[in-house]
Simulated assay, not measured.
Amino acid sequence: MILATRDLTKRFGRVVAVSGVSLEVPRGVRFGLLGPNGSGKTTLVRMLLGLVHATSGHIEVLGEPMPKRAATVLPRVGALVEGPAAWGHLSGRANLRLLDAAGRGRAGRRRADRVDEALDRVGLGGVDRRPVRAYSLGMRQRLGIAAAILREPELLLLDEPTNGLDPRGIQEMRALLTDLNAAGTTVVLSSHLLTEVEALCTDVGVMDRGRLALTSSLDALRAPTGRILVRTPDPAGVVGVLDGQVLGRAGELVTVRGTDPVAVNAQLVARGVPVSGLVLEQRSLEQVVLEITGAGSDRVDRARSEGPR
């Protein structure tokens, strides 16, 4: 496992931010840590990096205990947590050169080449000498990711990596992370954006109120439900032919029990029932997360007993 935790807990006074999390992430995956805001995702990532010490429990990253072995582990890890950090009065290129020098970048290549390659990969190859404080939010985010990949890490830990990026930038970052993963880097990201995790990740963990509610491959989560959705101008005809299999109907849409759409279609057509659409139902990641997290949310409603202000 490239990272593992056992019974990991973090308390801030009376608040339990992370509670008894046991997590294993194998090498080579793209792992998405999902959950509502305030579910403990960022605190967990910060503990993995040794930025916050656990109240109790055990952490291993790259097979080494953390934070005890941070000095040997962190040079092999790229990270972006709670927004990119930079010296605002310096240019992006100067920031990366300082980081590369501090991290003793990969031997055998000139520092300038490493920095230029990282900037090119995140779409900042043509950046000028403007100080970082003059960058847009999207440019800062790209620079933070450039800093994370500068040392060609074995593991990338990214917290909300597409924050501030426009749709094109999000697509570019998705392609970059996929390419890095294909080249051997394990990618772990935390996000509340279901669509991004579903588009990028191979495996997922769901956090809910400090607890790890689920870990699974994305394919397993989206497995067929055992129901087929039939769209037809003659729903009564479908009910007549498949009466024992019908689970419900709404307008022209009839839900039937089954796992073989081809066989269902053939059965209906043979009895003269027109079919305009037919699909094997699969749960979306959104459905899975909402089922697991229940009422978990950053929403704050007014108490019913509270009078007008």
Rank of each mutant, 00 (worst) to 15 (best):
111 R>F: 06
112 A>F: 09
243 D>L: 11
149 I>E: 11
222 R>A: 12
187 V>A: 00
216 S>V: 10
198 E>F: 00
266 A>S: 09
225 T>C: 11
306 E>D: 13
295 A>K: 12
187 V>Q: 02
159 D>A: 02
122 V>E: 03
31 F>T: 07
151 R>V: 07
105 G>I: 14
93 R>I: 06
202 T>R: 01
2 I>P: 04
261 P>N: 12
114 R>G: 07
287 Q>G: 11
232 T>A: 01
38 G>N: 08
229 L>Q: 10
229 L>V: 15
257 R>E: 15
115 V>C: 07
6 R>K: 11
278 L>C: 02
74 L>Y: 03
279 V>T: 13
242 L>Q: 06
3 L>S: 03
100 D>E: 14
205 G>W: 06
18 V>Y: 07
182 A>M: 00
71 A>Y: 12
72 T>D: 13
283 R>V: 10
94 A>V: 14
267 Q>D: 15
285 L>E: 03
78 G>K: 03
26 P>Q: 15
267 Q>A: 12
53 H>I: 14
131 P>F: 10
115 V>P: 06
57 G>D: 01
93 R>L: 03
125 G>E: 03
260 D>W: 01
3 L>Q: 01
73 V>N: 05
72 T>G: 10
230 V>N: 10
284 S>F: 09
129 R>M: 06
249 R>N: 11
286 E>L: 11
201 C>Q: 04
98 L>F: 14
265 N>Y: 01
51 L>M: 15
39 S>E: 02
161 P>V: 01
235 P>T: 12
65 P>V: 00
42 T>I: 04
155 L>A: 07
